[in-house]
Structures are given as C-alpha cells and as structure tokens.
Design a protein around this nucleic acid. Sequence first.
DNA 1: CATGAAATACATCATCTTTTCTGTTGCATT
DNA 2: AATGCAACAGAAAAGATGATGTATTTCATG
Lengths: 143, 143
Amino acid sequence: MMALSTKGRYAARIMVYLAIRQGAGPITKYQIAEAEELSADYIEQIMVRLRAAGLVISHRGRKGGFTIGQDPAKITLGDVLAAVEGPIRPAPCLDSYCKREASCPTRPVWEQAVAVLEDLFGRTTIAGMAEQTKAQEGISYSI
Amino acid sequence: MMALSTKGRYAARIMVYLAIRQGAGPITKYQIAEAEELSADYIEQIMVRLRAAGLVISHRGRKGGFTIGQDPAKITLGDVLAAVEGPIRPAPCLDSYCKREASCPTRPVWEQAVAVLEDLFGRTTIAGMAEQTKAQEGISYSI
DNA sequence: CATGAAATACATCATCTTTTCTGTTGCATT
DNA sequence: AATGCAACAGAAAAGATGATGTATTTCATG
C-alpha cells in the first residue's frame, strides 16, 4: 500500500543518473534506457514532465539529449515526485470538498501523513542520493 | 500519489464506528453502510480481512453483526491498514529481490518513508480517532 | 423447523497505470 | 542545402487493480 507509480520511481533514478553525469554534455534517452534498463519511449514521457518543471533541460538535434536543469543539491526528491506524480494524497478527500470534513475521524491522520512525507522528501536531495551511488561506484572501480 | 485504497480508508472509518458503539451489541453491515454511506457488499469484503486479523468479531444468524475485537485503545491505525491493505510499500522492490539493491540510490529513502509512516500509524489508535468524533457529536447534540 | 444475517465465491465493470507505436519538428554536422 | 539524429507530441493498446454486484451456502436464534 501507499505505492508510488513507476513514473515517480523511475524519475528519481533518472535524475540521479543525470546528476552524476553533470558536465558530460547531453545524455540521450537511449543511454538512460540502457543503463537503467527502462523503455526509452517511457523515459520520453517522464522527461516531458521533468522538463515542464525545469528539472531537466532538453537539447534537440544531433548531439542532443538531456542535462540536469538545476544544481542537484537544490533539487529535492519532493520536487521530482511532485513534477511527475502530482501532490502527495493518501486520501483523495484531502483536495476535494468533503461534507464529513469537520467531523471526520480519519482526516487528521492523512494530513499528518502528508506532512511527514513532505518533510522527508523535502529534505532528500538528488545530490545526496547521488553521493551514495558515486561512493559505491568508487568502490567497484578500486578493485 | 501515495494513495491508500478505499479498503484502508473505509476500514479505518468502520473501526471508529464500531469503537464508538462498543457495548451496544452486534452492528450489521447494513447499519454501517447507511451511517457511513458505503456499499454493504463492499463492507462485507473489508470485514473478512478485519475478522481474519482479529480486529472485529462476527456474529452469524439473527441478531448477528460485528463487534470490535479488541480494546480500541490498543488497536492502531497501522494494525487496521496492515490487515486490509498489507504492508506499506512505496516501492515494490522493497520486498522482492533487486539486483540493484546494494547500489540503488533510491532504496534508502523508500525505507525511510516506510519507517516514518509506520511510526505515525503505529502511534494513532482507534480510540484516539474516536474521541475526536465523539467530541464533535457532543457539540452538535448540545445545540 | 423457519428466518435473518454473515460467509464465500464468482462475475463484472470501471479506472488507472504502463507500455508501445506512429509521425513530426528542430538542430548540428557535413 | 542535405542528411541524420534526437527530442516532441499524441494516440492507443495492453495490463493491472480497484470497486461493486450477484448468487449460494452456512450458521445462530426464536
């Protein structure tokens, strides 16, 4: 329960991938697809949303591809998830009018769930996530 | 994103409903259905899972219905959600083998999300949720 | 027994997610 | 200018899940 869709999970991995390769020029969706074992067509759809949010920059034509749109230390996981999946909503009643609102025994907990998740995802940066991967790769290279 | 299904949300409301009416004898699914504006057929399916977890007790035959299975102060929202929806899993890779496991940049944050949600839901009791509703009903009666 | 209510199983409908496909547009290289 | 690569756009197929309904069975009570 409380699952993210693949869009959110893939987007997070894609952002870390681009963060690690920052400065190496545009990366194509095909490169990402191969490295992360995802469908290039599906990556395309995710990129549309990341680009609209300014999280990645696209470069058309030959030698084109995608680069990260901002400093990875300033992009949070919350930004990425919001861009591709929309706001955190354990219960849909939280953004539509609900006549039980005033007396609903469950509403406060769902609101608290939103708060703790927004806090966690807001504190988690792409740069922070990338560090760990870089460290891992460093180890494997040193063998 | 990160939505609970109706099973979890309805189950929470049903448990609070039964907690408030504790001691008044078995409540039928039709009574719950009318009060909470849910389908009686769907309540039935939710009850199967709540019963299997010992959270409600069913009484067959005439004068039958459902009663709460334990002290509402000892039943947490986490217990209820686990019974009807299964464990909290932002990403499915958390319980299946994943070859990226060791180097995955996203896995730690999904694990942290599970932790903060389990903490929140584990601290929230049915009795606590019921209090609020009782208080609200008290206010409306006093007019 | 007869009755009312839960238990169980199965069928269906709706919605959302995920994936794939087809074509178009823009840019850099030659 | 011509060519090739890669993003862009939209559609639609495929799959999964959620939600609900129907029918039958089992059981406790009067």
